[in-house]
Amino acid sequence: MAEAIEQKELVRKDYVSDVEVRWCVGCGDYGILKSFTVAMAKLQLPKEKVCIVSGIGCSSRFPYYVDTYGFHSVHGRAPAVATGIKLTQPDLSVWVITGDGDALSIGGNHFIHMLRRNPDINMILFNNQIYGLTKGQASPTSPIGKITKSTPFGLIDGPMHPLPMALTAGATFVARVPDTDGAMITDILMQAHKHKGVAFVEILQNCNIFNDGAWFPIAKKANRAENSIVLKHGEPMTFGADNTKGFRLNGMNIEVVDMEKDGVDISELLVHDAQSQDATLAFKLANLAHPEFPYPVGVFRQVEAPVYESGVRKQEHEVAEKFGNADVEKMLHSGETWQVEA
């Protein structure tokens, strides 16, 4: 029977659970959910082999809507739960779904530590720059000056930037994608799945109730060509309606050039190298802000590094080989013992 399940071709609907989706009408989360299930079907992942772990937030309701194994844990700490799952069953496809408050505020510590350990877990951060579920307070990604329920006179705290944070923590796969580009989400999630090691994906998500339009200048379909730049490994960094603009390195800094107006040849443009061991380029790109620059999206970095759970398992096997396999009696009798005769 198990085999029969594996052999049947899975379609997107097979990954959709029968739980009624409870996000606000128009919420960016719907599109992400759809692109995720499309990715699942394209990857033909056996449903029982997928485990989705979330924290708390609107975004963290995600696991209920996918018909795989799911775990809606506590606020901010899904990375810990996911790590325990991965260490027990390394061959599961484990996904962490989190929000900007969940990952970067209450869960900041776990976020950093999961990334530095490099387990083969995919983390998707739904960044809407607001606390959705608690009805609209400032989040760690809200910009300075932002008026929210908790900051009626404007936010004073400076924001946190998830991508530079992820890179600094040592993430081996780092990507960003707008919620308006379903095909790109699916593509990047598939790449994240195939990447061996931790994958961090930031999705620029619209909360149309409490922070409507926060990403519109970048993410709206009409604005994407001019205000974002899609990073493609091995290709020159170009953007614009006709791809006539691009990034050039000027000294240590990235500058925007218009190839036609400035008379710049495409060969002078920066070529994206996501696979460089040196994360400097990825870090520079991750720090570019709109409107000074088009906002980079796509895969910033993808490098190979030892995978956490593989290392853990390998060590367990090595120890077993060196000291002999599990023998409880031997363990209990180890060290100095003595006999009391009858």
Binding site: E48, D67, H72, I85, Q89
Partner: peptide, 13 residues
């Protein structure tokens, strides 16, 4: 436990 075909389910608080 995850990995068991047909028992996909969700838990939470």
């Amino acid at each position: 436990i995850p990995g068991t075909p047909g028992l996909e389910h969700r838990v939470g608080g």
